[in-house]
Amino acid sequence: MSYSGAYRVNEPKVVSETLDGETIAIDLESGSYFSMNPAASVVWNLILDGHPAAAFPAVVAARFDVAPEDAAGDIERFVESLVRDRLVVAAEPRAVAAPVIAAQGRAPYEAPSVERFDDMQELLLADPIHDVTLAGWPHLPPT
């Protein structure tokens, strides 16, 4: 990969959850939400754990039916799109150990992909729960 460092999830503005191989991320500043497929979720969780970008292809190749060198370009494009949407930012690697290369069955490979949705912006931004401080909430005009 062209970038040899690592990334970090752009917290606290971005929150995420991975369930059954699908990751949902919410940009709490824009109200956009993102859905990531299984390979993308693997990479996302490597980022969350602070692993260097150079480690991503081997982990993906261990989990999916793909060669590391074939996955590398897909992963790079995926991470670039995360950076573009400011879901992740460049950072120093933080993981203290190499990622575990699971010796489990390899799932069929689909290139990591993330899809962005803006249809719930108003509701996600208006959720009063976000603003647990005395600073008040975002004011939304009635629509």
Partner: peptide
């Protein structure tokens, strides 16, 4: 007495 603001909250 603590005022946390007034707004449109379609979720509530």
């Amino acid at each position: 007495g603590i005022d946390l603001g007034e707004s449109y909250q379609p979720i509530l």
